[in-house]
Design a protein around this nucleic acid. Structure first.
Length: 745
DNA sequence: GAAGGCGGTCTTTTT
DNA sequence: GACCGCCTTC
């Protein structure tokens, strides 16, 4: 390892600065991971630090795995004793050893988003809360936010005080927490909060980990929330060897509680912190980098910085506005295909980035039709599927039956004639007698007012589980799973429920995948245990991409920009660059100006994924929530100076006409004749004639969808006029006069 | 208790 | 357009 030759000056400084708090401000593509990995190797190789004294915290499993791999490449097997993982997985490991101190069973389970929802539903029912007045989702978010700020139910109660609505949330929070606890579960936020609690309440435990983790590094520091900050603060307080790496411009998880001020104020919190800035970008051409810079500089809350590169200008960034989402997808797919057929690229060189997951549908269709290999990188989908939820609930019930929620889930799957009324009675009975829900099943005869038919069904369900449990003692997990599927005729059930054969096939694939995962787990674990299995996998969202057919590498990747963080591709498409989608309506309409800034950071992340060629696309028309929505080009496009952009409108026109499906041709023609392009900033040489709308400020107008409203202002937006209208029912909206077709009243 | 129909909501992003 | 929960009917 020759630090001075293999790293630049700043990177080398970051590596050599091993004592005390260090803040590495690492711009996109500045060799951040490289620096971290070298730093760890340096600590071990040059400073004589024992590998097991190093803790590296990341935000995603992907990042953790990459880091592990790279450090292993550098220092070999010794790397195995370093602790590298996500905040959540590290906390799980700590809690695994100490959960009993907090009163949890040592085999606690992790409640994922779906589990949270069903627990919340149960809580609402018991407390008699109206989900219409207090939507579950919002409540879950509030509770999650409280936990991020380390507020337990008691603290929340005193914070709520006499405020009625807050008190309601507080009551729900208390009951929710009790339910989780009695099910032996922790949700994601609990993992962090409880670890902090453990450290605060048991100083000897904290001391143990302080000694263990003498050197702490935190990646993606800009995404940490308050509880995570507290955690690393506690852990690092003794030796103070805390090195955080991040980029405030890439903070994109505020909605999940990330506190950007953790990084913005790091130097205030640690006045003696050594600060290194990595500003040389090794990834992108200067056109791409300059575009990214010019977008992000519109944000107010950021540390000023200047990314630069030795790379040449490269190609200009292309922007294409197509007429609808299908044409947008077709444009991208054709573009990729032509690049590949010319032999310039392989499929694996391309990534298509989207703002939302739903956007992938059209893109997938377009790629599939053209036989282009692709993969969609999806979040937690696998473990969140109905089939997997069902079957793991079965497995856990066979294993121990402790978790009421899981038993309830499957007691009537497939239909056995055990309805909600009876389930509730059993639940009440179990509480009254202080036994578990599953135990109550064996005493179903003692529960009054359950119909005889139902009782018989419950008995046979209970006996089946006990039977499989007994027989399964010396079977592999996947064999037990097969037994369950057989005994319940689960496949028949799926077939009868499935709305399409395609879906059924997919579900069977999921089952096969689950079996595989179970087998792999049993193979590589000394003392396999289903609770442990669930815990590991509940935290690892997408290991679906591990398989991926013949050549998993050579595929076009479709993913959200959130998912793309930390990755890079020779060619990147950013699809859906439209006002209302990106930035999304929620952020535009938010009264918090920081909301749009977060979207802009996401845009910055997207742009900086591209190494050589970046294409931005948008659709004028898009189906959203079952209705057509017209949108103007994203403001982010307008923030990119023209000199970095290439707008080849002529090309677009011919492409567009070719791609229209015959059935839509007529409608499309009509559409083109009527509608001038909405995109407005690129005025030079416009041959469009813009017409002054027939209304003026203060006039009452009618919109085909939004109804009546009053014109607030009309602004010259280049090719078209931008009209702001305050609608009586839907509030203030901005639109282009050419599109909106407002009628004067 | 189950099945089928209706109406409301959702789509931001994830550990 | 899809999904979910609620309601009605059998």
């Amino acid at each position: 390892m020759d630090i001075d030759r293999e790293l630049n000056k700043e990177q080398a400084m970051a590596v050599r600065c091993t004592n005390g708090p260090v803040l590495i401000l690492a711009g996109a593509g500045s060799g951040k991971t490289r620096t971290i990995v070298y730093r760890m190797a340096y600590l071990i190789g040059e400073m004589g630090v024992a590998p097991w004294n190093i803790l590296a915290l990341t935000f995603t499993n992907k990042a953790a795995n990459e880091m592990k791999e790279r450090i292993r490449d550098m220092i070999g097997e010794r790397a195995g004793t370093m602790r590298v993982g996500t905040f959540h997985s590290i906390c799980v490991r700590i809690l695994f050893t100490h959960a009993e101190k907090l009163g949890y069973p040592p085999k606690f389970e992790i409640a994922d988003t779906t589990d949270q929802k069903s627990i919340m539903k149960d809580v609402y029912k018991r407390l008699g809360v109206d989900p219409k007045r207090y939507p579950e989702k919002i409540t879950i978010n509030k509770i999650s936010g409280a936990k991020d700020e380390l507020m337990g139910p008691e603290e929340y109660a005193s914070f709520a005080g006499m405020d009625f609505a807050l008190k309601m949330i507080s009551n729900i929070y208390t009951e929710y927490q009790k339910t989780l606890f009695s099910n032996g579960m922790m949700d994601f936020d609990d993992l962090i909060m409880n670890t902090v609690r453990l450290f605060n309440e048991f100083p000897e435990v904290l001391e143990e980990y302080r000694e263990r983790f003498k050197y702490i590094m935190v990646d993606e520091y800009q995404d940490t929330n308050t509880s995570q900050f507290e955690l690393i603060k506690l852990l690092s307080a003794k030796y103070r060897n805390l090195c955080v790496v991040g980029d405030d411009d890439q903070s994109i998880y505020r909605f999940r509680g990330a506190n950007i001020y953790n990084i913005l104020n790091f130097e205030k919190y640690y006045p003696d912190a050594y600060v290194v800035r990595l500003e040389e970008n090794y990834r992108s051409t200067s056109n791409i980098l300059d575009a990214a810079n010019s977008v992000i500089k519109n944000n107010s809350e950021r540390k000023p910085k200047a990314l630069w590169t030795k790379e040449g200008e490269g190609e200009k960034i292309r922007y294409r506005q197509l007429d609808d989402a299908a044409l947008e997808a077709a444009f991208i797919a054709d573009d990729i295909r032509s690049r590949v057929s010319k032999g310039e690229r392989e499929y694996g060189d391309f990534a298509i980035l989207t703002r939302t997951n739903i956007q992938s549908k059209e893109l997938e269709d377009a790629l599939r039709i053209r036989s282009i290999d692709y993969d969609v990188v999806k979040g937690l989908k696998f473990w969140d599927t109905k089939v997997i939820k069902d079957l793991t609930a079965y497995l856990m019930t066979v294993d121990n039956g402790i978790n009421e929620m899981r038993v309830r889930r499957i007691i009537n799957i497939p239909k056995r004639g055990i309805g909600n009324a009876s389930i509730d009675k059993i639940s009440v009975f179990s509480r009254a007698n202080n036994i578990t829900f599953f135990e109550a099943l064996s005493r179903i005869d003692n529960i009054p007012s359950v119909p005889a038919k139902t009782k018989a069904a419950v008995r046979s369900f209970y006996e089946m589980i006990v039977r499989i449990r007994k027989e399964g003692r010396d079977m592999s997990f996947s064999a037990i799973l097969e037994r369950i599927i057989e005994e319940c005729s689960y496949l028949d059930y799926l077939l009868s429920e499935a709305e399409s054969s395609e879906k059924y096939r997919e579900q069977k694939e999921y089952i096969a995948k689950l079996k595989e995962t179970l087998d792999a787990y049993e193979d590589e674990t000394d003392e396999p245990d289903l609770t442990d299995f669930m815990r590991i996998n509940g935290l690892e969202g997408n290991n679906l991409d591990k398989e991926g057919g013949d050549d998993p590498k050579n595929k076009v990747l479709i993913m959200t920009m959130h998912n793309a963080k930390g990755l890079e591709f020779p060619e990147v498409y950013m699809a859906g660059m439209e006002e209302g989608l990106f930035p999304g309506y929620a952020s535009i309409n938010s009264d918090d100006p920081m909301a749009v800034e977060e979207e802009r950071r996401l845009c910055y992340v997207g742009i900086t994924r591209a190494k050589e060629r970046l294409t931005l696309t948008g659709a004028r028309r898009r189906m959203v929530n079952g209705e057509t929505r017209y949108s103007a080009a994203s403001r982010f496009i307008k923030e990119i100076p023209g000199k970095f952009l290439n707008l080849n409108q002529a090309v677009e026109k011919t492409e567009r006409r070719e791609r229209i499906a015959p059935s839509n041709r007529e409608a499309a023609h009509r559409y083109f004749e009527e509608k001038p392009p909405a995109f407005s900033t690129l005025k030079k040489g416009s041959d469009m004639e813009k017409k002054l709308p027939p209304y003026k400020e203060g006039d009452r107008v009618l919109h085909f969808k939004f109804g009546e409203g009053t014109v607030l202002s009309i602004a010259d937006g280049g090719r078209d006029y931008e009209v702001t209208v305050e609608f009586d029912n839907v509030g203030v909206r901005k639109m282009f006069a050419g599109f909106a077709k407002l009628k004067l009243l």
